[in-house]
């Protein structure tokens, strides 16, 4: 029963979080100075009449409360509205942008997790050695680099080996599926590498710390005393218990896969949701912003809930 209570409580919190986020999405963007109509009416010979027509067209002439009610009603029907920028449905735009973002950020995140876990475990295992110092300092350095600076350095160092902008080669005419796949992958290299390098350090440090904690536990000492090989002690006794904090970090990272990486996508001209959010902010494209942040909220909340439930599974202490 306690397990059911736990699940219901966590799910309830998740739903409340989503509702609060939906409301904040509406309020925050409208609280920004500058409005959408100013941008939309920037056409040659625009007149005040044009501004009024645009305000009416998008319902921006209504009171904020009316706009909020309409927003909730439409959201309940699964309608996120029409983008102010190009008059296309936000849902279809988000799908397109997410389809570009997820593979790139997911690849970078997976590489970061693998690299971080491996280096973290090795650092802990070889604590105090030259290898540990090198690994830890490298991880801290990459963790500290500003993302956009690292991205620019990669562009300067690796331009010529990999494409520095965009997702595809415009001049690869009528490519086969395989050619297209290769083309996308090669364009993905630098942005995914940037994601990986900026994320992996955090994993290294957390895994190292968790491993050091578990390596000092009595049961590890017992395992050693039983004559088990060092690697077996690490793999079967220390590592599994050290995974708990890492799972939380993974859940958060997976949530942010959908958010994209605004800086990375902007530097590399990657046509994903991060860049779309950046452009939508500067153009006050409210429907696009609301849609993007709603999707982000849902995914982050979902993965945090999943982490909570996974904890429930991994750590029996929660139910006792």
């Amino acid at each position: 029963m306690r397990g059911i209570d736990y699940v219901l409580k966590r799910t309830g919190f998740a739903l409340i979080t989503v509702f609060v986020a939906i409301t904040l999405n509406f309020v925050l963007f409208r609280a920004l100075p500058g409005d959408a109509i100013t941008n939309l009416s920037r056409v040659p010979h625009a007149t005040p009449q044009l501004k009024r027509a645009i305000a009416k067209e998008f319902g921006l002439d209504k009171s904020k409360w009316q706009q909020y009610v309409i927003y909730l009603e439409q959201l309940a029907k699964g309608n996120m509205g029409i983008s102010y920028e190009d008059q296309q449905p936000v849902v279809s735009k988000l799908k397109e942008k997410l389809a570009n973002t997820i593979p790139m950020v997911a690849l970078g995140t997976v590489i970061a997790i693998l690299l971080g876990v491996v280096t973290g475990v090795i650092s802990a295992w070889r604590r105090g050695t030259y290898l540990d110092n090198l690994s830890t300092m490298t991880a801290m350095a990459f963790y500290s680099f500003p993302t956009q600076w690292l991205a620019l350095m990669l562009i300067i160092l690796l331009a010529g080996f990999f494409p520095v902008s965009g997702r595809t080669d415009v001049f690869l005419l009528n490519p086969s599926a395989w050619q297209h796949f290769k083309d996308v992958m090669i364009h993905m290299t630098l942005p995914a590498l940037t994601v990986a390098l900026t994320l992996y350090g955090e994993y290294t440090l957390i895994v190292r710390s968790a491993m050091l904690e578990t390596l000092g536990e009595d049961y590890v000492l017992t395992a050693r005393a039983k004559g088990l090989k060092p690697w077996t002690v690490v793999r079967r006794h220390a590592f599994r218990n050290a995974m708990l904090p890492t799972v939380t970090l993974m859940a958060i990272s997976l949530g942010y896969i959908v958010a994209g990486q605004i800086l990375i996508e902007t530097v590399f001209g990657w046509p994903g949701i991060g860049r779309a959010v950046f452009l939508a902010v500067s153009e006050r494209d409210f429907p696009m912003l609301q849609g993007a942040f709603l999707v982000l909220t849902l995914v982050v909340v979902f993965f945090n809930l999943a982490a909570d439930l996974l904890y429930f599974r991994l750590d029996p202490r929660i139910t006792t």
Binding site: I156, G160, P163, V164, S165, G166, V267, F268
Partner: peptide, 20 residues
């Protein structure tokens, strides 16, 4: 002709330098 859209000037100049 084709347009390739860049979102930062450094990447644009690097693309020129490398014949992209």
């Amino acid at each position: 002709f084709g347009l390739k859209m860049f979102s930062n000037d450094d990447a644009l100049i690097q693309a020129a330098k490398h014949g992209d």
